[in-house]
Amino acid sequence: MRRLLHWLLRSLPVLLMVIAWEAAVRLGLVGAALLPAPTTIAAAWWRLAADGDLLPHAAASLWRATAGLAISVAAGVALGLAMALSRTAERLVQPLVTFLYPLPKSALIPIVLVWFGFGHGAQIAVIVLGCLLPVVLGAYNGARGVEPALVWSARSLGARRAEIVRDVVVRAALPDILAGIRVALALGFVLLVSAEMVGARRGLGFLIAFLGETGAYPAMFAVVVTVMALGFTADRVLLAATRRLLRWREA
């Protein structure tokens, strides 16, 4: 009961915005053709879902997002750790990371589409392009910040090098790695939708572009809301996982 009340209180601003929006449209303050009312969007969403148009596109997007993020996390953690643990890897990769970090990844979407074609591969490549570096930097900074005494104490307790990486370096870097993944997650959704708008025949981004071009704005907004809901849910899941993985930090 208290939790429900708390939750209601926290969603109040969003609720008020939706009500104001609805009122503005109904009172004719904004044109319903350009900005449909929330109830209209909800109805359109329901029709899209019921007709079976939404699910295949959502599934395609989710699959791409999951694959892209998984690749970014695996490769990003490996690269970041390598940079922190080996001077050679640091000298090799660090300049590239610094140089490529400010590059606007969305600018590369057209060329990536040419390289990878119009299938899942291209969309996944775009996500990796954007998500890799935040994870690399998280792992690198986290692993570099390991307290030397922790490594020393592990060595004194008989840990070998591989064990120190696994049991000390990765564990100590985990908070930074998870923070990097959170940034990557947000970026990943933005890039995915952009890439799908330009060059895909399936996916929520494609659906938004298609509905927008045909002037079906209520349905288009319904898909935008779907993307938002997916992104929000993914972020919540990641936060819950983070809290579980880092429960040792709560005193």
Binding site: E147, A149, L150, W152, S153, A154, R155, S156, L157, G158, D167, V168, R171, L174, W248, R249
Partner: peptide, 19 residues
């Protein structure tokens, strides 16, 4: 190199905080 023949106790404990 460091090994379990020489046990070390550190000023700031150096416990693994995640264990």
């Amino acid at each position: 190199p460091p090994g379990p023949d020489r046990g070390v106790v550190f000023q700031h404990f150096a416990l693994f905080p995640w264990k």
